[in-house]
Structure formats: C-alpha cells, structure tokens
C-alpha cells in the first residue's frame, strides 16, 4: 500500500469578520493518513469539521497551519501551501471530489458535465461520452435527460450526475462529501458498488457518510473526529 494522503497537525479556525470577528475553532492538530485501496470514513458529531477537513484536502478550504501532502504522480504536493495552478493540476490528474451539491453550469448537458473531467485529461470527446453514458446508466439517469443541462433536474438527479462526474476520471484519490444524502436505496447500492470497485482498483478514498448502512458497507477504516 502506498500512502496517498498524509495530513499533519492541521488546524483550522473560521473567523467571521462580518459578525464581529467571532472565532469558530474547527480542529487543531488533526492528522490522517490514507493509502491506496483504502476508504477512510470521517466520523464524529456534527461540528467536528468532517466536511471542513475534506474541503481542506481538496484545497477548497485554507487551513491556518499544518500540511496536507498528497501524492501527485511521483511527487508529493502540500495542498495547504501550493500555488493555485498547482492545485488545479493536482485536481485535474489526482484529486476527485464529489461535493454535496452539483454546481450546474448553464447550458452544458449532463453528459458533458460528467465527461468533462475525462476531457480535461485529454481523452477524446467520443470515448469520454461513452464512459459518461455508462455511469449515468448505472446511476439510473434516463437517457432522455443526458442532453439536457442539469440545472432543471431534481435534487436526487443532480446528485447522481455529480457522483457520475466524480467517478468518471478514475482519479487516484477520491473525496466524497455525503454523496448518498438524497438517494434512494437502489441508487445507494450503486454508489456502494462504485466505491467498492474504486477500492479494488487502488483508489484512495476519503468520505463523509451520514447513513450508517453506507458507512459500514464501504469503510476500511473509520477516522473519528472530536470537537
């Protein structure tokens, strides 16, 4: 097993300047190591910073101190200190992320939303669409919706498009932020399968799952977070 993520003494406090400078400490001295083929679940009561940690891993949230070393090809990149263009490159090739909500881009059809991470890797348009179609089929998005922009989809449909997009490019690292929150049992099962396949292919996964069934089905290890 190769270490893919190594978080070291990470601290984060939100300072709300618009509300009189209130400080909300989230975590301090957090540490986490994730290797290939592992699915580590972040667990703990709400407010302990599960989502914040996940966002820090993706570079979406800027920690106050500490390091987040991510294995990117043959190099280790500290996401907490890297320049924006480096983070973008790491996201393109190494870091996948399934957020809680899909940020729909106006006018771009669902199929292209899912295919985009593959296109960014240089896969040709046709092959990328084929893979995107497979994922959308598995996640039960009817084909008549593929060529529509997801902005008008239901919450559950949007979330499934988002999941398909996250899994499309088979990034070596995949971060999952409550991907099954608004899914029914059948679609949950598909996500569990997808996670299982990713693990088998050596992907390092870190996730936050609100429901116990999914958590138990996918976790290789549970990382408990304390407030």
């Amino acid at each position: 097993m190769t270490v893919m993520i190594e978080v070291e003494s990470l601290s984060k406090t939100y300072v709300l300047h618009t509300q009189g400078g209130v400080e909300i400490p989230v975590f301090a001295g957090a540490a986490l190591t994730v290797g290939t083929g592992e699915c580590v679940t972040l667990h703990g009561p709400s407010g302990t910073g599960k989502s914040t940690l996940l966002r820090c891993l993706y570079g979406n949230c800027k920690p106050d101190s500490g390091a987040i070393r991510v294995r990117h090809g043959d190099t280790a990149v500290d996401i907490a200190a890297a320049a924006p263009r480096v983070v973008i490159e790491v996201r393109r090739r190494t870091l996948g992320y399934v957020s809680q909500f899909l940020r729909a881009i106006p006018r771009v059809p669902a199929l292209d939303v899912v295919a985009e991470p593959l296109r960014a890797l240089g896969v040709d348009a046709e092959a990328a669409r084929v893979r995107a179609g497979e994922l959308l089929s598995r996640l039960r998005i009817p084909e008549r919706l593929w060529h529509l922009a997801p902005a008008t989809f239901s919450g559950g449909e949007q979330q499934r498009v988002n999941i398909a997009r996250g899994f499309a490019a088979k990034h070596p690292i995949l971060l999952l932020d409550e991907p099954t929150a608004s899914l029914d049992a059948r679609n949950r099962a598909v996500v569990i399968d997808l996670i299982g396949e990713a693990k088998a292919e050596g992907t390092a996964l870190v996730g936050v799952f609100h429901d116990d069934e999914v958590r138990e089905a996918v976790s290789t290890r549970i990382h408990t977070m304390q407030g």
Binding site: Y14, V15, L16, H17, T18, R55, G59, N60, C61, K62, P84, V87, I88
Partner: peptide
Amino acid sequence: TGLTDQVLDDPHHPYTQLLVS
C-alpha cells in the same frame, strides 16, 4: 488571492467575507 473556489467558499479577509456574504 487564491484559488477561486477557495476564496469564495472560505474567504479570509474581512472585505472578501463581506463581498461573498
């Protein structure tokens, strides 16, 4: 300064927070 989504989702400077909010 920073990555677009980071600045918008986790703004640090008081002015940026005001702008985003």
